[in-house]
Amino acid sequence: MDFGFMWDTFLQLLSGIPLTLNLSFTSVAFGAVLAMVLALMRMSGIRALDGFARAYVFVFRGTPLLVQIFLIYYGLGQFRPTLQEWGLWVFFREPYWCAILALTLNTGAYASEIIRGGLQSVPHQQVEAAKACGMSGFLLFRRIVFPIAVRQALPAYGSEIILMVKATSLASIITMMEVTGLAAKIISQTFRAVEVFIVAGLIYLILNFAITRIIMAFEWWLSPHLRRPSTVEPRLEAAHV
């Protein structure tokens, strides 16, 4: 192992991190909105909406993301004249937006199940109590259901975010120069695959470790009721000295 080379590679790969994070967070943000809509459709009790959301989740969870990316990027390229007519081509022309679209549609499917789980875990007593106080509709959702559901869903959503960070590596296949794309480029110049991939893996590991910590801190901040009261612990050190 040539550590000097690995350090150089590390420094070069750092410049791919902004794009990796950009792709992850943009698609997680759009995906969350989509997931919310899908979850509400599933729970709406309207058969057509419920059926559509189910089919959507089945299709996007049942096919590899790589196939979805190829389908959106190269597949839709086959229909350029039609897309141009509809004025959508400006969007599909850019690999960045194709990657965002594929990642968003994908995470939307997974996250909608997480959100649905969270919404369903809200104790009905809480809802009833709120109703008894005269809350209803959006106010009930905003003040009671949503905060509790978010708290419940957060650990699972945290893993989903990590999965998305990992999934952005597939965007390298459609010419995006994020961390994996840069790694492939460095390999093409140096022909040293193993060292470069180890360094790239390390970068993802560090990124995901940091994100996990942030989510954990967020979880802690959201659940003050589960924290132990901060009593002053009896200090034992003094006795030892």
Binding site: I162, K166, A167, S169, A183, F197, Y204, L205, N208
Partner: peptide
């Protein structure tokens, strides 16, 4: 490690 590194890598 396996959960933190993209499967592609």
């Amino acid at each position: 490690v396996l959960r933190g590194i993209p499967d592609l890598l």
